[in-house]
Design a protein around this nucleic acid. Structure first.
Lengths: 165, 165
DNA sequence: AGCAACCGATTGCAAAACGCAAGTGGTTGC
DNA sequence: GCAACCACTTGCGTTTTGCAATCGGTTGCT
C-alpha cells in the first residue's frame, strides 16, 4: 500500500489522479489530436508544456493506468503512448468540460468547434467516438465512420475560414 | 487585460480555473454538503484542507465568478458563500467525475452512494438538482421535491447500515 | 564512415505553490 | 468579563513548477 488517499469520495479520487493543470491536457492531445509520441506532444503543444513536466506526467499517467507505453517498432528509441480503457471513458467528462468552458470562458472559435460538435452529438456520439478510440488505442475491431476525422475536418474548416475571412 | 491564458481551448480554460486539487472539492462541499461558511468548510472537510489554502481558493473562486460572498446578517464577522450560475452548471461535470471515479478508483461505499444516484438519475435529475441549487444559492423560486435531501438521506442510510452491520 | 537531425528524457536552478501550526483582531453569548 | 467562535493571516520548511540547457543514443543521408 504505497498510496494513501485523502478520502474515498469518487470526486476526490478523480481529482487526485487528474486534478492538475497538465494531465488532462496531455490526454486531450492524445485523444483528439492523436499524438502518440513524446516529441509530438511536446512540439505541438498548444499550451507550451515543459519537457520535464511532460515526462513526469506521462510517467504518472502510465503508473495510474490511464496511458500505456510501448516501444515503436520503427525506431528503437521511440515510445508510443496509448489511451487505456479508463482514459477512453473520460470522453463524457471531456464533453462536459468543453461544454462548460465554451459557456463560461473566453474560448477561441477554432479551438471550441470540436467541443461544440461533441456537445451537440451527445451520448450517442460519445459512444461512437469511444468505440473509435478503442480501435486506435486498444486494437479493437474497426466499425462505422470516423468521429475523430469529422471533428478534425470541422476544426480545419474553421481555421481555413478564419484565414480566408 | 490582467489575465493571459495558455490557449483558447475550452478544456484548457476550464482547467485553468478548476484544474487543481482543491477548487472542485470546495465547490463539491458547498453544492452537496450545503456548507456555506468558511468554518464549516474547514472543520468538516473530509480531505483536511489547510486554512490558508481554503482562504486562497475561496478568494480565487469568488474572483473567477464561481462563488459569491456576502455578509451573514446573523453575525457581523460571518460570511456566506454561495454558488453562482456557472458553478451550478458544473453539476453534469460532477456527475461524470463521480461516475468515472466510481468505476476506476477505490471509492468507499458511503461516499459514493450520492455519485451513484446522480449517475442513475441522469440529465433529468441533474436539471432538477440545478433548479434546487438555484433556489438555495440564487434566491430562485422553489419548486418540486428536494434532490439534495434525497442524496443526503441515501448517504446517511449507507452510513447507518455500515455502523449497524 | 561521418555527421546533422532527431529520440525520449534528465539536470540545474529559481520561483511559486503547498502544508502545517500558530497567531491576529474582532464578535458573540452567557 | 470571559470563553468560544469568526474569517483569515503569518512564518517557515517542503514540494512542485517552469525554463533552458544538456544527455547519451538512434537514424537517415551522403
Amino acid at each position: 500500500m504505497e498510496n494513501t488517499h485523502r478520502s474515498g469520495c469518487p470526486i476526490n479520487l478523480t481529482l487526485e489522479v487528474l486534478g492538475d493543470r497538465w494531465s488532462l491536457i496531455i490526454i486531450r492531445d492524445i485523444m483528439f489530436g492523436n499524438r502518440r509520441h513524446y516529441r509530438e506532444l511536446l512540439n505541438h503543444s498548444e499550451e507550451g508544456i515543459a519537457s520535464n513536466i511532460l515526462a513526469d506526467r506521462l510517467k504518472r499517467l502510465v503508473e495510474n493506468g490511464l496511458l500505456s507505453r510501448r516501444d515503436d517498432p520503427s525506431h528503437r528509441q521511440k515510445a508510443i503512448y496509448s489511451l487505456t480503457e479508463p482514459a477512453i471513458q473520460l470522453v463524457p467528462l471531456f464533453a462536459q468540460m468543453g461544454a462548460w468552458g465554451r459557456r463560461h470562458m473566453p474560448v477561441s472559435d477554432e479551438l471550441s468547434i470540436r467541443a461544440e460538435l461533441l456537445e451537440e452529438g451527445g451520448p450517442p456520439m460519445w459512444k461512437e467516438f469511444m468505440a473509435e478510440l478503442r480501435t486506435l488505442h486498444l486494437d479493437a475491431p474497426a466499425a462505422g465512420p470516423s468521429v475523430l476525422a469529422g471533428l478534425q475536418a470541422a476544426y480545419e474548416e474553421v481555421v481555413a475560414r478564419k484565414k480566408a475571412g
